[in-house]
């Protein structure tokens, strides 16, 4: 069978589908001071998943606000800097008007994912951290 670390090199999704892969990638991102990008990506997925259980509107609002505050509000943050202004104002609008939608972070998540696919993920595959692990 293919060892997991070889699968990680196939695509970002195969890497993010494996606990050890995530852990190693996060260690690398932390070194590059951009671990927030990965946390934000997972937070968006987790937020979307909340939709399944009804009756937690209050929790959804709280969580949407928390994600907005931590990753988007601060324009100097690593995540905020990678997201398009239009996307940021869309999210801000949703939060301010309490239009909480399961897909409200989708566009921002896609932008961060593209950034990882084009930038940090290829760098990770060439990094000492990954090469030493293999």
């Amino acid at each position: 069978p293919t060892p997991p670390y070889l699968k990680w090199a196939e695509s970002l999704h195969s890497l993010l589908d494996d606990q050890d892969g995530i852990h190693l990638f996060r260690t690398f991102l932390k070194q590059e001071e951009c671990a927030d990008m990965l946390d934000f990506w997972f937070a968006c997925s987790g937020f979307r998943k909340l939709e399944a259980n009804e009756g937690n509107e209050e929790k959804k609002v709280k969580l949407a606000k928390a994600i907005y505050k931590k990753y988007i509000l601060d324009n100097n943050g690593i995540v905020s800097r990678q997201i398009k202004p239009a996307t940021k104002s869309f999210i801000k609008d949703c939060v301010m008007k309490l239009h909480i939608d399961p897909a409200m972070f989708d566009q921002a998540q896609t932008e961060i994912q593209t950034m990882m696919e084009e930038n940090t993920y290829p760098l990770f595959l060439k990094s000492d951290i990954y090469l030493e692990y293999t």
Binding site: D18, Q19, G46, A66
Partner: peptide
């Protein structure tokens, strides 16, 4: 503030794959 962080952490963990 703590509970906001806890909520975020819980959300992030919920999206991660389970141990295989």
């Amino acid at each position: 503030i703590d509970s906001e962080d806890d909520l975020l952490q819980e959300c992030i963990s919920s999206a991660m794959p389970k141990k295989k």
